[in-house]
């Protein structure tokens, strides 16, 4: 068959179909059955002498306080080691992907607190972030880490997610940006570059920390080579936890942040 580039392009276009997901107007994409989303802690008190979960956590995300067991999603690697060792099944990871929070302490889950599974997630918009309701341009800064968070930010640009339809875009120059989206624990070697990039963004501006590294240092927490996250040097307006967060978690957080959902 004689083909011309144009015909081949058209043929492939038909074959590849329309793929942009209906979310947020329609349903979110299906998450796999083994997906680990928001942790849920059993409100019943743990046996007194048991601290298996705390010692199993590689990043000290779990701790006891008077009100009971706490889990810091900002540190959590979502590896499930705690759930595996818990003898009473008091820790489980739900399929709730809505993890973003405005304040750092909101990432801490308490056993005493009731789970909001199935309920609407709290609004995240701030006086500043509302200004970017229809157009948010972000300069992404990768400041250490493993590049998985970056990869799942990039995915939002693919046509399946098509973040551009909400007016949210990654831009090349901080001068064109309304804020920065930071990944990585902020290595010593990236500190200056991150500060400079932040300063280059015109005010009003926002800072978004994506991934457990950017929030707490992640697996590198307390290494002298890094700074335990973005908050160590910049004010953070939005925290999106995960290691890495699912693209749906990132998108949902951004949409809630600009008041789109």
């Amino acid at each position: 068959m004689i083909t011309t580039p144009l015909l081949s392009i058209l043929r492939a276009r038909v074959k590849q179909k329309y793929r942009t997901m209906p979310y947020p107007k329609g349903d979110p994409p299906n998450l796999p059955d083994r997906y680990m989303g928001k942790p849920v802690l059993d409100p019943n008190p743990c046996p007194e002498d048991c601290s298996s979960c705390i010692s199993s956590c590689p990043v000290e995300a779990l701790f006891f306080q008077e009100s009971g067991l706490h889990l810091d999603m900002g540190s959590c690697l979502f590896c499930g080691a705690c759930a595996d060792v818990c003898p009473s099944g008091a820790i489980r990871f739900s399929k709730d992907y809505r993890l973003a929070a405005k304040e750092r302490n909101r990432l801490v889950i308490e056993s005493a607190q009731s789970s909001n599974e199935g309920l609407p997630a709290p609004p995240l918009a701030t006086a500043i972030s509302k200004k970017f309701h229809r157009s948010l341009r972000l300069r992404q800064v990768s400041a250490g880490g493993c590049n998985a968070c970056e990869a799942d930010c990039n995915v939002l640009n693919t046509l399946a997610w098509d973040m551009g339809r909400f007016g949210i875009q990654f831009v090349a120059s901080p001068r064109h940006a309304d804020g920065i989206l930071v990944t990585g624990p902020v290595t010593e070697n990236m500190k200056v570059a991150l500060e400079k990039t932040y300063r280059a963004v015109p005010a009003p501006k926002v800072v978004i920390a994506v991934g457990s590294c950017a929030i707490s240092g992640g697996p590198y927490k307390d290494h002298p080579e890094q700074g335990n996250g973005v908050s160590s040097i910049l004010p953070v307006d939005l925290f999106i936890p995960g290691c890495p967060p699912h693209p749906l978690t990132i998108l949902e957080g951004l949409l809630r942040f600009v008041g789109r959902i």
Binding site: P58, V59, P219, P244
Partner: peptide, 26 residues
């Protein structure tokens, strides 16, 4: 991107070791 992984692996294996391996290059 230097974050001290080889140094931190020394003295292991411990709870974090496998996570270091998984995040050497995401």
């Amino acid at each position: 991107q230097h974050r001290g992984v080889e140094r931190a692996l020394t003295g292991g294996p411990n709870g974090r070791s496998v996570h270091y391996a998984e995040t050497l290059a995401g």
